[in-house]
Design a binder for these strands. Structure first.
Length: 629
DNA sequence: CTAGGGTTAG
């Protein structure tokens, strides 16, 4: 009998070890334990780990880790099973040994989650882990530190990530371009574009060469800053560096063009990728070259490109074109995925077409396209937006039952809309139900609460939420800072808003919304001089909203001719008036001028691409009713 | 590394 033999042999060895004496007893016993553990672990018999837990010393554990370093899957399981056991505590070092082994075997995701365990569950600081990794390996083991940088950015530890990169540089160890890209991408995700450019310039200064991903990030950053032509010119820089653009960069340019109201440009870009240089730098030869290379690379628009364009059309009110594009896509053999369906359903809801959205949803099911984590939230938001908050709550609860609402997404939407009804209690209830389900509020949740409190009860309560957010180690982003700024402006507290803007500038975190918010604040409280001063200093940063705010102020002051002049400036700068410009101007002109003037203004604006919405319609209807036409 | 939730204007 195997077991009998085995146990008698163990007993024999054990007895012999006792006879040799206490000094040598322990290595012998450790050997036996070691072998027994290895045999059992290889057969995935985990019971022994529990049985022998009181004997597992650090030296024994390191031996086991080394023994299994060739099979990282098994190693990870050992590590986790030991971690589950209360009697044995992992040292930071044993975890770092495991991390080194995982990275050595290219199991980066496993290494990443081990690091996250150390940071989150065990509360180790990034630099503690850094030191331990050096102690258990070598500082020149770059992939390990690349992973550590990634772990930092994934958990919002921006400064730690940056300090790590700097610290390694002092040791003449350079994290890879991949880690640098990861850091740059993180800065864009948290909305810190100022810091993005500082980090990028620094990276180039220290001799890194951009790869295709770095260039894509540059395109993304420039698109976010609405510097579309600069974003396009990144393509030249890429080719000059001998790097061929890929579809990801082009997709971002398509998105940037759509968001800058340049749909035609987006379409051209897709139809003939080389065309983009026309009207920008005037170098058709280079454009042809780009196109040629892209065709060679098999770089044709993918499903994502079409999705972005579907979004672009819909966003600008051309839902019909979006559907036409879908037909074209299907003709080209690209099958709409859940993202394309989601986008269309989303925009149908935004247009108020609830039944159309419902129809498309059933079509999605019919075509066996599985709904994803976005679909559920889009339905919840769509219903809320169309005044069916109770129905949205019903769908939400149904989703919770069916386990479709696992993330904070739809919760955030509900909190937003319940807050809009000034139902603070109701919003708090949704927040509580989040906690009950083990969902942790994210930055958007806090942002929504801050805006909600600003509008429902004033800035003070909003600031409480802000400090709560800081306590939970969540970093404020640009949207949150802008919301707080709006709160100050709405309460005429321009001292605090000045301090805040100063701080935001120092942090390099501000955008057009920041200044538009302040501008709107000035206009609302009649600070005309300040408003003009700010407007003039905004320069190229001024966007459509900036002009709408200024036009509205001039109209309210009865300076209609000046408002029209400003409309001209707006058009000269390539900014298209929208339905808000329309309502502002029509409301004003109908009060002061003849019906001919109103009709003239209407035609003028519609010819320049304004697509009337419900409120523009109301503006005209009220004028017609008053005129008795 | 790219579309789909929270900020500014009627």
């Amino acid at each position: 009998m195997f077991l009998g033999l085995h146990s008698s042999k163990s007993r024999y060895l054990f007895v012999r070890a006792l006879h040799i004496g206490p000094k040598l007893a322990s290595p012998g016993a450790e050997d036996i334990l070691f072998k027994a553990l290895c045999v059992n672990i290889r057969q995935k018999k985990w019971k022994i780990l529990n049985q022998l837990s009181s004997n597992l010393t650090n030296t024994l554990l390191s031996r086991i880790f080394r023994e299994f370093q060739a099979s990282p899957g098994l190693l990870l399981e050992i590590y986790q099973r030991i971690g589950e056991h209360k009697a044995i505590s992992h040292s930071l070092n044993s975890c770092c040994i495991t991390i080194h082994i995982m990275v050595g075997r290219k199991k980066y995701d496993d290494a990443l989650s081990l690091m996250e365990q150390l940071m989150i569950s065990k509360g180790h600081a990034a630099f503690e882990i850094f030191e331990a990794l050096i102690n258990t390996g070598s500082v020149s083991n770059i992939p390990v530190f690349d992973t550590l940088v990634r772990a930092c950015t994934r958990n919002g530890l921006t400064d730690d990530a940056y300090e790590l990169i700097k610290r390694l540089r002092i040791d003449s160890c350079w994290v890879s371009i991949h880690a640098m890209n990861n850091f740059l991408n993180h800065l864009l995700k948290i909305g810190d574009i100022g810091r993005f450019w500082i980090a990028y310039r620094e990276m180039i200064f220290f001799g890194y060469y951009e790869n295709v991903n770095t260039f894509n990030l540059l395109i993304l950053a420039l698109c976010k800053e609405c510097k579309l032509s600069e974003a396009f010119s990144v393509l030249y820089k890429m080719l000059k560096s001998g790097i061929i653009p890929n579809v990801v960069g082009v997709n971002m340019l398509v998105d940037g063009a759509c968001r800058a109201d340049k749909l035609d440009l987006a379409v051209k870009l897709i139809e003939k990728i080389g065309i983009m240089s026309m009207g920008y730098k005037g170098n058709p030869e280079l454009a042809e070259e780009i196109m040629g290379k892209m065709v060679i690379m098999g770089m044709s628009p993918n499903i994502r490109t079409y999705g972005i364009l579907v979004d672009g059309y819909s966003r600008n009110g051309f839902l019909e074109d979006a559907f036409r594009l879908c037909d074209e896509m299907v003709e080209k053999g690209l099958i709409p995925n859940s993202a394309v369906y989601n986008l269309l359903i989303h925009w149908l809801y935004m247009e108020g077409d609830v039944s159309g959205a419902l129809f498309l949803l059933s079509n999605m099911m019919k075509n066996c396209v599985p709904p994803d984590r976005f679909t559920h939230s889009i339905i919840v938001k769509g219903l809320c937006r169309n005044g069916q908050v109770n129905e949205a709550l019903r769908v939400h609860n149904w989703g919770l039952e069916k386990n479709l609402a696992k993330d904070v997404f739809s919760h955030n939407v509900l909190i937003d809309y319940i807050f809009r009804d000034k139902d603070i209690r109701g919003a708090k209830q949704v927040l509580c139900s989040m906690f009950v389900r083990g969902l942790v509020p994210d930055v958007v949740t806090y942002g929504t609460m801050i805006v909600g409190y600003c509008k429902a009860s004033g800035i003070e309560k909003a600031l409480d939420i802000y400090s709560e957010m800081i306590k939970m180690n969540k970093n404020p982003n640009l949207v949150i800072l802008n919301s707080i700024l709006d709160g100050f402006c709405k309460e005429d507290n321009f001292d605090y808003s000045g301090v805040l803007i100063g701080e935001m500038k120092r942090l390099n975190m501000y955008d057009a919304v920041t200044f538009n918010t302040l501008l709107s604040g000035y206009c609302c409280s009649g600070k005309i001089e300040e408003a003009f001063g700010l407007f003039n200093s905004m320069g190229k940063m001024a966007n459509k909203v900036t002009f709408n705010i200024m036009i509205n102020m001039l109209c309210k002051l009865g300076l209609f001719e000046h408002a029209k002049e400003l409309l001209g400036v707006m058009l000269c700068r390539g900014l298209k008036p929208d339905e808000i410009t329309y309502t502002t101007l029509i409301t004003s002109v109908s009060k002061t001028s003849s019906s001919e003037e109103v009709v003239k203004m209407h035609d003028y604006l519609v010819l320049r691409g304004v697509i009337p919405d419900e409120q523009t319609f109301k503006a005209v209807v009220s004028w017609v009713t008053e005129e008795g036409i």
